[in-house]
Design a protein around this nucleic acid. Structure first.
Lengths: 324, 324
DNA sequence: CCAGATCATGACAACGTTGTCTGATTCCGG
DNA sequence: CCGGAATCAGACAACGTTGTCATGATCTGG
């Protein structure tokens, strides 16, 4: 900016005025300044600007598990859209389900003075965010509740979803229903399991712990479980989109396959044979409401922390409608 | 930092020393400072730090078409991984294939002084980035070449891929092969079409312009094309993962379906019936090499712009091996 | 032609850090 | 007990902006 001022023969302040479109600059001066800007390829330093103005940075941070997972990439896009309405951009980071990495990313984002922070919790202790959540940067937890902080949270009715799945399978005559879920330390996984138990109970289906295998899961662990202990089941509920895909691959080619209901919808589910019945919910809304919550807080909303739970519903496509 | 200094009874500079782990601070003083930091929840402002140090910001910008597209979300993850090795984060923005939005995002990122900028070009004029690419922030174009700028670029052998697809179908006896591609203004789409023509020529298959429909495509336009003009074809090449999915949905339920080869691999392609033959390449490598190029430049590499073209290969799964 | 208003511009400080330099203690060996 | 080195801490300026205030030039109307 200094160089621009020198080249245009004006003070640095006048350059600032031109750059910001402030009124009260002589048109001739302004065009000299603009020429100089053009010639030097000047671009104002937003960091310095924000520092001086004490304003918002126009960046919101998003810490999730893995952007490459279609579920999270849709979420990211939804967040990005709300941010972009506010002229803001999104800084993303994948924690890879590692609490330490999640913390590192979150703190790093806060050091960068993001206007708001969205976190898909990997760990279960988020006390380290309590201070920010209280006084300062709005923090919103997405998809999973935080441990040890009372902050805005947007969730999905996990237990309701798996209960629905269990009842659906029971209605189709299944009495031996298996459940493949993620690591029990992950709150959504625990909720989905307990919803599954509740659904079984509601439908009068005996709950058999032998037919439950919690993760973390890999393609191999899923295949192993399905080939071994879960073989006795006539139906299967999978706890998230990754596990569903692993299960589909493990079951491919089997002559008789268990009925299946998967948690999370996924692209092409309708084109598989049989089409896959899933528990679905509005992923975009999950991201969008979390981002909107940040802007509501920035807009001055100082009420008590809000908790929003999005409904789940069962989308019957065929794979869950096979009779036992 | 001022408050911390006051609380600890030291100067602001000493706080800075403690925060940065500089040697030469009395342990007792340091612990008083640390207590004060803890008590006040102080977190240093990275923006101000970078301003003062004139250092890199530790952020790299990524402008792409849509993070929610699995292709781009894998790319994002790969970029993020390279960045994270360097202690950097990724600022993402979706252009939605709109050149103006692409430009806006790119310039915004540059104003934020990203250390490097990765762009999946939406438009075909990128002169506005020439200055930065030359003197200053490294700019790398990904997946598509830039127009009007000579900068580092990482591409995919599009023409080679579709030529492979055409020849593969020809080998299986097809003589009437249709092509569904994206808008011809998108360079990758144009290359894929010309590769398709070349492949047809190599295999001695007549090229029929009536069997070609370029986009932009929606589910409806794809369905319409397949129901109408392309009905005469015995085989089909689709120009990207979106179009492949639309085509699959449009063809589902038909008694006789054309043989199909799709550009871009996608999850579950192997589980469809028939499994889908695709042209594939290493998406992660695409993102990773682009990010590495940025760091190579930052590391002082001042050679002429490099252009890397990743190979494509045909992954035969069944849908392309149907005879005419 | 002049007082007062309006316009165009610049000097200066400040945002939150850190690099440089200087000053005040403390320590050591002889 | 002294000189010099080592240790610790602070004052100050600067990074690239912008808000506040002051200044001089140019208008306007009577």
């Amino acid at each position: 900016m200094n160089d621009v001022a020198r080249l245009a023969g004006v003070s640095i302040k006048t350059v600032s005025r031109v750059v910001n479109g402030e009124r009260g600059v002589h048109p001739g001066t302004a065009s000299r300044v603009l020429d100089a800007i053009e010639q030097l390829g000047f671009r104002r330093n937003l960091g310095a600007r924000n520092l001086r103005r004490g304003a918002e940075t126009g960046i919101i941070g998003l810490v999730l598990e893995d952007v490459a997972n279609p579920f999270y990439s849709m979420l990211t896009r939804a967040v990005e859209e709300v941010a972009s309405e506010q002229g803001a951009q999104v800084l993303t980071g994948s924690s890879g389900e590692d609490p330490a990495r999640e913390r590192e990313l979150a703190l790093e984002f806060l050091s960068r003075r993001v206007d708001g922070l969205l976190v898909v919790p990997a760990g279960d202790r988020h006390g380290y965010l309590a201070r920010e959540a209280h006084a300062g940067t709005p923090v919103v937890f997405v998809d999973r509740p935080a441990g040890g902080v009372d902050a805005d949270t947007v969730l999905v009715d996990n237990a309701g979803g798996t209960a629905l799945a269990a009842r659906h399978l029971a209605e189709h005559g299944h009495r031996r229903i298996a459940f493949l879920g993620d690591a029990p330390g992950i709150s959504t996984a625990a909720e989905r399991l307990s919803g599954f138990r509740a659904g079984c109970a509601q439908a009068g289906v005996p709950f058999d712990a032998e037919l439950v295998r919690m993760g973390p899961h890999t393609a191999e662990s899923v295949a192993g479980a399905l080939a071994g202990p879960l073989r006795a089941a006539t139906a299967l509920v999978t706890g998230n989109n990754r596990i569903t895909v692993h299960a589909l691959r493990a079951l491919a080619g089997r002559a008789t396959r268990p009925a299946l209901v998967g948690f999370d919808d996924f692209e092409l589910a309708d084109l598989l044979d049989p089409p896959i019945t899933v528990i679905t919910y509005d992923v975009r809304e999950l991201g969008a409401s979390a981002a909107r919550a940040v802007y509501a807080r920035l807009g001055g909303d100082a009420g008590p922390p809000r908790r929003l739970v999005l409904p789940t519903r069962l989308l019957a496509r065929g794979s869950g409608e096979v009779s036992a």
